[in-house]
Design a binder for these strands. Structure first.
Length: 441
RNA sequence: CGGGGCAUGGCGCAGUCUGGUAGCGCACCUGGUUUGGGACCAGGGGGUCGUAAGUUCGAAUCUUACUGCCCCGACCA
């Protein structure tokens, strides 16, 4: 992509409404624009990153044996009346009426709908397990939206739902998601720690929040250092294996958010040198809720004995749009964002230091073509900005690699490759630079 | 939902107390000099001063109501 063809409205100064660093940087890097409190337009750079995150989530859900569907944003109120939640949900639910004065709502979640869909499709225990997910916009009318897309009212979320015949089977579905989450966040360059969470109406041990560590995190978290460096299962993990045993490496170690933190247990269970007190951001939540909705909505199947058995259900959420901000919170410096390669909007920022200088233009065009041909996403700054501005901008938007080409270097047969994360610079011949950047892909 | 603050050009702000017909920095446009980490000079364009009503010869400024946004708290992926 040539910058002259792109839409990248970067800001030089910090917008005053932004309180946390990810919000400031997303506004400054031209990733989003606020339309009203907690509701944002996604501009090209932000949208690009969000799609990359979404795709990683999708791939790992598929790998874990969940099947993608798409449910609507607008739901009929009757559906929610059938579970009793229409009255319970309160003002966070955005309630609307259509032209026939029918009560509708902008969905804050989809348990009721998935239960109805499953009732229609599941007739026998032989049809189970049913494991579905979708990635869709949701709306929760937060009293006080803040922190940009970190806590907006409209947000993109992956939510998955499992339906099993009994609790043992439900456990297996639950741990599929547990492992999928470890892999998903790892692929985005995040350290996500599963932490025991309140498990809603059922209780028990089947609810975990996945929290990423970031200095600017919203809540205090406490965990065993072993969890931070625990190697995540590889992509050949067998999802039909006993994943609860695999997950035990995580669930057996101490980890808690401040609400659930038990200092005495922390001190007793974790040797002092391994105690981590940090800040965290919740990016995922998985839980088993048993028959809460299936009971209320009469969703059952016949078991092998011919007896009606209510669905055993779990739901599993990942805040996709929130992750965009979460990743920035975990990956930035004074100059701007530092994208992990897997979610970077482009891999290489090609900087032409002197547009109009024929040798420099020629060299840049060649790089641009060759990198594109090699399948490397390039953002080519072909504007006639001054060099200083280009450097600042490129650091701000945080592409992993910068390829800096100017007349001075061309004369001595060199270009500069800069790694955004480490700050390392390499003066290389054009061929060596091209080789370095294409071999990474 | 309680408490507080703010609303003036694309962004950040001054002007409001003490009413007199709108200004600064950045950004933008033109010309020139520059050019490897946010240059300089000269010229220029752009604002129903959140909305509505009121007071006044005259309102960004005073009064009232409303709306929006931000912050703290309670709440939350």
């Amino acid at each position: 992509m040539r910058l002259t063809d792109y839409f990248l409205p970067t800001l030089r100064e910090n917008p005053k409404e932004a309180e946390i660093v990810s919000h400031t940087l997303m506004l400054r890097a031209g990733m989003v624009r606020q339309e009203t409190a907690g509701i944002y337009s996604w501009l090209p750079l932000g949208f690009n990153v969000m799609k990359k995150i979404e795709q990683i989530v999708r791939e790992e859900q598929n790998r874990a044996g969940f099947v993608e569907i798409l449910m609507p944003t607008i739901q009929p109120a009757d559906l929610w009346k059938s579970s009793g939640r229409y009255e319970d949900y309160g003002k966070e639910m955005l309630r609307i009426r259509d032209r026939h004065d029918r009560e509708m709502l902008y969905g804050p979640t989809n348990e009721e709908m998935i239960t109805e869909i499953s009732k229609m499709g599941v007739r026998s225990y032989r049809d189970l397990p049913t494991r579905l997910y979708h990635i869709q916009w949701k709306f929760r009318d937060e009293v006080r939206p803040r922190f940009g897309v970190m806590r907006g009212r409209e947000f993109l979320m992956k939510d998955a739902y499992s339906i099993d015949i009994d609790k043992e089977a439900a456990r297996r579905s639950y741990y599929r998601q547990f492992i999928a989450y470890l892999r998903t966040f790892e692929r985005m360059g995040l350290k996500a720690i599963p932490m025991a969470a309140d498990s809603g109406p059922i209780g028990g041990d089947m609810s975990h929040e996945f929290v990423i560590l970031a200095d600017t995190g919203e809540s205090a978290v406490f965990c065993d250092r072993d969890l931070v460096d625990m190697p995540v299962p590889a992509d050949d993990i067998g999802y039909d294996d006993d994943l609860e045993a695999v997950a035990a490496a995580w669930t057996s170690k101490y980890a808690a958010t401040d609400e659930k933190h038990d200092e005495a247990k922390f001190v007793a269970d974790v040797p002092e040198e391994r105690r981590v007190s940090a800040r965290g951001i919740e990016v995922g939540h998985i839980f088993y809720f048993g028959t809460k909705y299936s009971d209320a909505m009469g969703a059952s199947v016949q078991n092998a004995d011919g007896k009606a058995t209510p669905f055993e259900m779990g739901s599993y959420g990942i805040g996709v749009s929130r992750l965009v901000a979460g990743i920035i919170e975990a990956n930035h410096d004074e100059a701007g964002i530092i994208w992990p390669e897997s979610v970077a909007p482009f891999h290489v920022g090609l900087i032409n230091l002197k547009v109009g200088d024929s040798e420099t233009d020629e060299a840049c065009n060649a790089f641009y073509q060759n990198l594109e041909n090699a399948g490397v996403d390039v953002l080519y700054d072909d504007t006639d900005e001054r060099a200083g501005g280009k450097f600042k901008n490129m650091d701000l938007i945080g592409l992993p690699w910068q390829l800096i080409v100017g007349p001075r270097g061309i004369k001595s047969g060199e270009v500069e490759v800069k790694n955004r994360a480490s700050g390392e610079r390499f003066n290389l011949s054009p061929d060596a630079a091209l080789n370095m950047l294409t071999s990474r892909k």
